[in-house]
Structures are given as C-alpha cells and as structure tokens.
C-alpha cells in the first residue's frame, strides 16, 4: 500500500473533509481588517503628532535660553512617536499575514504603511482630530501631561518674558488685563506699538479670549508686551 493509499484510507476512516471556504475567507478578512485598523490608528497618532508640533512656537527658543536643537528635542512627542512605531509594526505584521504579503519587502511595506499613515494623519489633523485626541488624553489619561510637552510649559514663564492667559479687561491694544493660565493671577499688560499676530486682531475682547504674550516682566503684576499671539 502506498502512502497516498494509506492517507486516503485514513481520510475516509476518520471522515476528514476540507474545511469550508468561508473559514478561510473570514480568516483573511480579519487580517485585512486588523491591517486597516492598524493603519487608521497610525493615522490618528500621526495627526496628534502633527498637532503637537504645529501647536508649538518654533521661534521662542532664544527666550528659553536654548538653541534650536535643544528646543526640538524637548518638544518631540516621544510618547506618540513610540505608539506610531508600534502601530506601524502591527500594520506590517498584519500585512505579512495576508495571502501575498510575503511577496513584498519589509522596507516597502513599512514605507507604504508610513506614507499612508502620514496621508491619513494629515487629513485627520485637518479636521481637528489631533487636537481632540490630545485634549481627551490630557483630561482622561493620568501622567499624560508629564509624558508630552505642551506649549503651556513654555508660556508660563513671565521671568523669561513669556506669558499666556485670558483677557479680562480691555483698554486698548496697548493696555489690557489678563488672567494667566498658570495660577490665575491678574496681570496689567502695557506696551507701545504692540504687534498683534494674525489671525488675532486688536479690538474689544470677546469673552475668554486666550492669548500668548512676548515681552518682559516689570513686577509681580505688570508685564510689558512687545508681541501678542493667539493661543490656538
């Protein structure tokens, strides 16, 4: 009796049958869904990263007594970058499990997954998802604030000439009162020919208008302003 005949007899005896096609289709679909999910999450992570980078002011490193490289190293959102790398890896792993995934080189899959994540992430960022995710994590995830550098860390240093808060009293573009975000202290802000950056124009303050100020601290409640920027 040949091996084929023995096997055939065993198949009959044990009543072995081919597994149904839907099982394999389901398995394949699950892999593709996991791959797509990994890409979507990667896109969301990219959108937060873009948001965190774009939310920083790249020209204030001098005020912080740092050079541009030191400043960049501080504001890099390592937390999100690590998550991005993990999900990029997950996307690759899932793609490898697809029927023909093995035919593509790792670097090509990672590149395509990275570029797709970037395109998705930019789209999500455009629709404000990055900001929303960051706010959600700030509110709900313990220690998140410590892990990610937000602009508020730089703008709560009046001694270094950086202050942020909400306008509470308006006397004109060169004289107004703000309540700072750090302690809620009120500051009399004065200046001459103050530069107001777009898109925020000088004018009567609406309720809760938030701004950033570059200038110098005069005393405990007075700040001389040179430039005003919108908080967002």
């Amino acid at each position: 009796m040949t091996i084929s005949e023995k096997t055939f007899a065993a198949i009959k005896e044990q009543k072995i049958t081919p597994k149904p096609r839907w099982e394999f289709i389901l398995k394949d679909s699950v892999v593709w869904v996991m791959f797509s999910l990994a890409l979507i999450v990667e896109g969301m992570l990219v959108s937060v990263t873009i948001f965190l980078f774009s939310d920083q002011d790249w020209d204030i490193y001098n005020k912080l007594e740092k050079n541009i490289v030191e400043y960049a190293l501080i504001i890099v959102p390592y937390f999100w970058l690590v998550l991005m790398a993990i999900f990029c890896g997950l996307a690759w792993l899932n793609f490898r499990q697809t029927k023909k995934g093995y035919r593509f080189h790792t670097y090509l899959v990672v590149l395509v997954s990275g570029v797709s994540g970037l395109i998705l992430g930019t789209t999500f960022f455009y629709f404000g998802l990055g900001n929303k995710i960051d706010q959600l994590f700030t509110a709900k995830v313990p220690y998140y604030e410590r892990m990610v550098c937000h602009k508020s860390e730089f703008w709560e240093q009046p001694k270094l000439g950086l202050l942020a808060g909400e306008i509470v009293l308006w006397d004109g573009p060169d004289r107004f009162v703000i309540k700072d975000f750090d302690n809620g202290n009120e500051w009399i802000v004065t200046g001459a020919q103050v530069i107001w950056r777009e898109p925020y124009q000088p004018g009567p303050p609406g309720p809760r208008r938030k701004i950033k100020l570059i200038g110098s601290q005069i005393n405990d409640n007075t700040f001389r302003v040179l430039e005003v920027r919108p908080w967002q």
């Binding site: 091996i3 084929s4 096997t7 065993a10 198949i11 081919p18 149904p20 394999f24």
Partner: peptide, 22 residues
Amino acid sequence: AEDVLQDVFIKAFQHLNEFDPD
C-alpha cells in the same frame, strides 16, 4: 518522512479551499 508526508496530505486536503489558484 512517510509519517510527515501523510500529515502533509491530510493537512493539504483539509485546506484545499484555501488554495489560491494564483
């Protein structure tokens, strides 16, 4: 090797629906 081959044939039979004609 014959035992392994028998396992191969059984596994292939069970997975025949998974065979990709490409």
